[in-house]
């Protein structure tokens, strides 16, 4: 009898815990309209991975909210835990402390932030995938991999024609003699190659240092190199890893996204529109963010 009570009690607690939105995950399970997730295919095995292909529309395998990284890069959130302390150089730490993010360990109220993004400045790479990452569509052409991002309706090109990454972004190797050097870019300059039939690696440099790495205000310098690894696990899955290599601001490269799994979607899945609208942001600040922080602009 006593044993039965205990078993039933455990079952009851387990049930309540499962029903609690909190334990279902920080953001809860969210289904992008029309999207499918691993939970829809439990017990079913995926087919083999196609060779040298990352094309298709990709959504997070474990739920639509998996890409939301409010407190900073998913593998290294800004939560004050020693294991998530980034290997800042003194210059990097100084840059981090100058940033006033609205989330993470050093958060301030929205009205007091100096985050460039809410005013609709470009997020750039890698923040596009280290903050509010959403559905992506990847298009492969003979000489490019093009990625279309839902968030703020952005896209970028990764060159796959064998050109080298500029050694010095100010003086690219392929630049026509006497041509003006390209300006630094919000999205950097990206080249990619297949390291084996199932692993595509993109490297980017030439970044504008005004962007933040993530929503927690992690900084990068103009010396940053971003390495993205796309590993095609099987017919339905792709894993994305992002490594930050910025010797000016960090003493060693660090992994910001660690094998985040995506699931291939129907080719007819529509990516929702999500734009940054300065006039709407201004209204939000006036009606909500400023009074919530007691700020009179």
């Amino acid at each position: 009898m006593a044993k039965r009570v205990v078993v039933q009690a455990i079952a009851a607690i387990a049930l309540v815990t499962l029903l609690s939105p909190v334990t279902r995950g920080q953001q809860g399970f969210r289904r992008q309209l029309g999207a499918v997730y691993d939970v829809d295919f439990e017990g079913k095995k995926s087919g083999p991975a196609p060779r040298r292909s990352v094309s298709g529309t990709w959504e997070f395998a474990k739920g639509g909210a998996e890409g939301i990284q409010a407190d900073g890069a998913k593998a290294m959130p800004s939560d004050g835990k020693p294991e998530h302390e980034l290997p800042f150089t003194p210059e990097g730490r100084k840059a981090f402390m100058a940033h006033k993010p609205t989330y993470g360990f050093t958060q301030v109220p929205s009205a007091l932030t100096n985050d460039p993004m809410p005013g609709c400045d470009p997020q750039g790479l890698p923040r596009i995938v280290l903050h509010n990452a959403h559905t992506e569509q990847i298009i492969q052409t003979p000489n490019q991999v093009v990625i279309l991002y839902q968030f703020n309706k952005k896209w970028r090109v990764i060159w796959t024609d064998g050109r080298a990454l500029p050694r010095d972004p100010e003086q690219p190797a392929w630049a026509i003699k006497d041509a003006p050097p390209p300006e630094s870019r919000w999205w950097g300059y990206s080249v990619g190659r297949w390291v084996d039939d199932y692993t595509f690696v993109a490297e980017s440099n030439g970044f504008d240092d005004r962007t933040w790495l993530d929503n927690a205000g992690r900084p990068h310098s103009d010396a940053m190199r971003v390495v993205e690894t796309y590993h095609r696990v099987d017919a339905d899955h792709l894993e994305k890893t992002i490594t930050i290599d910025d010797p000016k601001y960090y003493t060693r490269p660090w992994v910001a996204l660690d094998k985040l799994p995506y699931r291939l979607q129907s080719p007819s899945l529509e990516i929702p529109e999500q734009e940054c609208v300065p006039s709407e942001t201004a209204k939000y600040d006036r009606l909500f963010a400023n009074p919530a922080a007691g700020v009179t602009p």
């Binding site: 985050d115 993004m117 509010n132 968030f151 703020n152 709407e280 963010a289």
Partner: peptide
């Protein structure tokens, strides 16, 4: 999280 799509789902 707010973000910019405007700003955010994270952050703001």
């Amino acid at each position: 999280a707010a973000g910019a799509a405007g700003a955010p789902e994270t952050g703001r």
